[in-house]
Nucleic acid binder design. Structure first.
Lengths: 333, 333
DNA sequence: CCTTAGCACTCGGTACACTCGACTGCTACC
DNA sequence: GGTAGCAGTCGAGTGTACCGAGTGCTAAGG
């Protein structure tokens, strides 16, 4: 554990480095509020912080830069629990006052909001359908041979799958199949294999069978939706183009993003710094995430992604506030 | 119009510049196949090409670089209509052999395919719902006070909107409302304001009314889906981080992307170079786009976006082939 | 004993001079 | 008209000197 003075010095280094992106020297730290000792003393302490692994020197005769461990200490020992500034708070209030429409649209807009607030890339994972239960199944014909089966689930999501229709089905057969499927699948979960008794009418049964096949088959990848935004803003924060490229590559792999955010869902507000993310190309990045609730249940995750020298207090405040407001908003439905 | 020799020289310059990203000098051009004159003659011709606006010199004593006009001439006078190389052709064949599932999924995957083939960013605009016609409307209750109205359209797309249900509606009322809406809206277009006669039953009418309100209201932005991919690959092609940032910014504005690609829908395979795109931040970019058909109708657009010094023959071939195969694929449904 | 002032030292970044090489434009010759 | 050759231009790369920010250490002071 660090004593109060070392902590203050470390804090000053992190804050200045976040601000300037330049290695910070003892002189600047000595001038920082909360550090009331001379630069010489600061130098001694910084040397000590370096051997303890909180700071690092890019080269002799340069200032110090925080290490992962340094950032970690910084976020773990923030003084106040992080508040949004007035203007941002206003923006959030505005957003949720005007927010309307479908959940999907809202999540996507929420990502935009987060990016605006933090100038970082935003990531929003839509609620997993787990727990949702079928409310209605309907088979609709589009042409003589093609149709769609539409499933409405209790959480308001709608799932659709195309299917080939048997030769010469009538509208009545489709209606009968829809009614039959709705009746027998109501209340069951999509996670389970779906099975239904026969109706007795062969033409209707043919439709039912094909509808079930269409519903059953395609679950190869997690169909969870991920909304990524603000990549342009993020690109600004890095100066090495190579880094930008790598991060974009990661963000394009939905699978990686989902598993990254999903691990964290029951940790509450959480920060992953550099290698803590477990993804090598994100070594120079940090991730601030928080779950949001739907109807009181942990549902999805929102977060921001940026360089390790991001403005943590701001990012934490933004993510925390937005996830809370989003949860409130989604409870009313 | 350029004579044959100038055209050959211009072609050589463009090809080498695309390859090396370095200004190309008369010596290299003289060595190029198809140019059988000395470097001195090339120099004379290049000077002439410069005054005519096809080439430009970054500074005295440097090689030449193509201007927009130069690229334009190059793509307008490609020798053969551009063929994919064997490996890429294989990849495309593979993709469409394995392609399956919903249209949305397929469009998104198609973007990935285009990026793989060209190493550029891909843009796919989903079919506009124009022309699609309502096939089925269904109101489903989720809780005592909330529900969704689901619209299935003739092109297989499904639209959903949440609504508040009046107090104390029964399942029967919902079913009656669904049947009534389906019956009276079948065949009408979503572009029109939707109106329906009363059923006579007040409870059912209340549901019908709310469903119509839910369907009518939210069309603030074009709900056309845009799939953007391969941004990481694109980032590699530019060396100025500022450019990457600007292009990412554009790609994040769905509205801009859609209007960019939509203008072009009835032009067939098309290339927009630099300022031809009409979007200032894309001055250093070029766009290769082609429409694709669904059921023989121009529906959406696919394209790739990259630096003006992209590999045009490759990009044209990829976009052309993929749009054709995609059209074929979507005709069967 | 901890803090601090002072000093010698290190080293990255900038400025400058210089060279090298890849070009060009021009001229004279075939 | 095409070409060889030459003088000239200018960016990129290199070596040197210098400046300044910053360090570590030491010795003096509270």
């Amino acid at each position: 554990m660090l004593d109060e003075r070392k902590a203050a010095i470390l804090r000053a280094v992190v804050e200045e480095y976040i601000d300037t992106a330049q290695p910070v020297g003892s002189g600047h730290v000595a001038k920082a509020p909360g550090v009331d000792v001379s630069s010489a003393t600061v130098r001694n302490e910084m040397a000590s912080l370096e051997t303890e692994g909180y700071l690092r020197q890019p080269h002799t005769s340069a200032g110090r830069v925080p290490t992962e461990k340094g950032y970690r200490f910084f976020v773990d020992h923030l003084r106040q629990p992080a508040r949004l500034n007035a203007q941002s708070a206003e923006e959030v209030r505005d957003f949720f006052a005007r927010a309307h429409g479908e959940v999907e649209q809202m999540l996507s807009d929420t990502g935009r909001l987060l990016s605006n607030l933090t100038n970082l890339a935003s990531v929003v994972v839509a609620p997993a359908p787990a727990g949702a239960v079928i409310r209605s199944v309907q088979v609709v014909g589009l042409s003589s041979s093609a149709g769609v089966v539409v499933v409405v689930q209790s959480d308001g999501t709608v799932d659709k799958h195309t299917l080939d229709l048997p030769e010469g089905v009538s509208v009545e057969h489709l209606a009968a199949a829809s009614a039959h499927l709705s009746l027998h699948l109501d209340g069951t979960s999509r996670d389970m294999p779906l099975r239904v008794l026969r109706t007795g009418d062969p033409a209707t049964d043919a439709v039912v069978e094909r509808a079930l096949a269409a519903l059953g088959s395609p679950q190869p990848i997690d169909p969870e939706h991920v909304y990524v935004g603000g990549t342009a803003r993020m690109a600004q924060a890095f100066d090495a183009i190579e880094t930008v490229r790598e991060v974009l590559g990661i963000l394009e792999q939905q699978f990686v993003v989902v598993s990254l955010l999903r691990d964290v869902i029951d940790r509450g507000l959480y920060v992953a710094i550099g290698t803590e993310t477990g993804v090598a190309p994100l070594a120079e990045c940090a991730l601030v995430v928080a779950p949001y609730d739907v109807e009181g249940e942990r549902a999805g995750t929102i977060g921001v992604l940026g360089p390790t020298r991001m403005n943590y207090p701001q990012a934490l405040a933004a993510v925390a506030v937005v996830s809370r407001r989003l949860s409130d908003r989604l409870v009313e439905g």
